[in-house]
Write a protein that binds this DNA or RNA. Sequence first.
DNA 1: GTATACTCTACTATTATAATCAGGATTATA
DNA 2: TATAATCCTGATTATAATAGTAGAGTATAC
Lengths: 149, 149
Amino acid sequence: MRITYKGDYALKAILDLAIHYHDKPAPVSIQHMAGRLDIPIKFLEQVLLELKKGGFVESRRGKVGGYLLSRPPSEISLGHVVRFIASPVEPIACVEDGYKGCRDIYKCVFREVWQRVSEATMRIVDGVTFSDLLENLNRKDKEQMVYQI
Amino acid sequence: MRITYKGDYALKAILDLAIHYHDKPAPVSIQHMAGRLDIPIKFLEQVLLELKKGGFVESRRGKVGGYLLSRPPSEISLGHVVRFIASPVEPIACVEDGYKGCRDIYKCVFREVWQRVSEATMRIVDGVTFSDLLENLNRKDKEQMVYQI
DNA sequence: GTATACTCTACTATTATAATCAGGATTATA
DNA sequence: TATAATCCTGATTATAATAGTAGAGTATAC
């Protein structure tokens, strides 16, 4: 698994929407989000469109428009998003679905290891939701305040 | 972490040398290895040269020359090789050494997760040596024989 | 009806990957 | 000492992925 810039942007975008999830529908505009996250606007546009296709976010057009999370942060895990944005999730082609290469014996002994790596990875990201991340964020904010006093 | 073809070839090459490690120095020629592993000869040449620079293999020139493992298979772990061939080993840039990007708060909450992923991955590959792989290979060979009877 | 914000398609630059090619240097062995 | 098999070096190529840009179009609120 390798998280590209695009994937990283997608995760940060969802976290940003999670932060703004609390009260009544107040969509976050691409411009504002791009400013906060330091992402090129036109690139973030594409990212959000894909996330919409993936069912992670919704959009409102026109004035006062923008993007919203389509589910509460507690129901979105890192795993969900990673599977969507970081394909392939596997560390090597031979562990992916439908792989037909590798005619010989050698494939097998490595394959088992890559599968274990893949499973360990997914176990971690599946165990983290965006509300977990929000909590960590708040904790960090408080710690930082202590230092600032 | 993502294992490329080149990396995959490197691992298979070392396993091939591990298989031929037993008796007195009988170097394995690139041609023979390339045939067994189904790898383009000139590409395998490059791979073996890099592995030599990495200290994993040695070479003998001239007639009856070829490549040899420079240490016994039990002293070479998958982790050693993966660190050498699969850079970056980390799942995302921000976990790599010397990273200076990501000015804002968001980096941190994801970073922890990527670090856990990275550690879990390395724990697995560090725990597997090429003599472990040889054992698995022999086990598989025996299983296959049973089916062939 | 106009400003604002999302939607969609296409394009470009850069880099990595996976080879391939051509030739030179080295050395064990007959 | 010739020679054959091998290692070694550097350049070149084709393809794909990645990161980002550009611009026209569509919906909505005021």
